[in-house]
């Protein structure tokens, strides 16, 4: 029965995550346009973009690009599927990191300076994200006593009660990984320009489409990790999502891009203050709280 549930969860994630992710990106573009007093594109625009890219001519900077971008998409989807089965959080984190390694390799395989700078920055971005994700896993472990995500649902109260700092830390990571200003250092979303699209600058056609779909999967993984903290109170999770969505849009529209040095400093300081302090407090008062 458990295995059946796990398989259903994984398949549901693989099918619905890109649909919901794409719709979220579409909403993002419409809301951003409205904030700039424009009409904006149709809500299904991200899907049109991907289908169009799929029908473009094959043009590579290097033939290995196809292998690397496919590996990126497959591994990101795999991480998400594993998350949906309620499996081990550490495996999710590690396979997500491996997935990004392939994106970075795809960007490095092109003999182009913009692509290389983008790859370096993507590497920095993944490096910034990693400690936060490990802290997330540590937080879950300290509260539930296990790295299995399914155990979060066995708790009497939602884990957010014990690790609110982790949620706020994950918000800054979401900003970074959605490639939103001020942290869109490696590449940036839709109409924004950074390093002529940085890490994706030498990708085109089908390969770019794969990276785009993988991006939707990744966004859904991070959002799912945030929802998971509210395991039993789903109304709170929905409210949190709405607040996070609008905050991300407002921050994206209001703040200018910062340098990668500032990105490292700000997010690591946030991680340190919110994540580490939360875990330390939890460690000290473990006997009283849990």
């Amino acid at each position: 029965m458990n295995i059946m549930m796990a398989i259903i969860g994984a398949v549901a994630f693989l099918v619905f995550a890109p649909l919901i992710g794409g719709l979220l990106m579409g909403c993002d573009r419409v809301f951003t346009a409205r904030m700039q007093s424009r009409v904006g594109p149709p809500i299904l625009q991200p899907f049109y973009d991907v289908v169009k890219l799929w029908h473009k001519e094959k043009a590579f900077s290097s033939p290995v690009e196809t292998i690397f971008t496919t590996a990126y998409l497959v591994l990101v989807a795999f991480s998400g599927a594993m998350l949906a089965t309620g499996g081990n959080i550490l495996l999710v984190v590690f396979s997500l990191t491996l997935a990004h390694t392939f994106l970075i390799l795809a960007a490095y395989s092109a003999n182009a300076p913009f692509s290389h700078i983008g790859a370096e920055r993507e590497l920095i971005s993944v490096m910034i994200m990693e400690p936060a994700l490990i802290l997330y896993a540590a937080g879950i472990f300290m509260v539930t006593g296990s790295f299995m995500l399914i155990d979060v649902f066995r708790m009497g109260v939602p884990v957010i009660v014990y690790i609110p700092g982790i949620l706020l830390m994950m918000f800054s990571i979401l900003l970074l990984r959605l490639r939103k200003s001020p942290f869109d250092i490696s590449t940036s979303e839709h109409a924004h320009q950074e390093l002529v699209k940085g890490v994706t600058s030498s990708l085109s056609g089908k390969n770019l489409a794969k990276v785009e779909v993988a991006h939707w999967y990744e966004a859904m993984i991070l959002i799912a990790l945030m929802i998971l903290l509210f395991s039993q109170v789903y109304i709170a999770a929905v409210l949190m999502l709405l607040v996070v969505f609008f905050l991300v849009l407002i921050i994206d529209n209001v703040f200018p891009r910062v340098t990668w040095q500032t990105t490292v400093k700000r997010i690591w300081i946030t991680t340190l203050i919110l994540g580490v302090v939360n875990i330390v407090i939890l460690g000290i008062f473990e006997g009283v709280l849990l």
């Binding site: 007093s37 169009k52 109409a191 600058s201 770019l208």
Partner: peptide, 21 residues
Amino acid sequence: TPVYDVERFGIINTGNPAHTD
């Protein structure tokens, strides 16, 4: 710009030949 807003039609200024139509 907001006055004509060609993003209504899905048009994006890419600045990158690999992504261009």
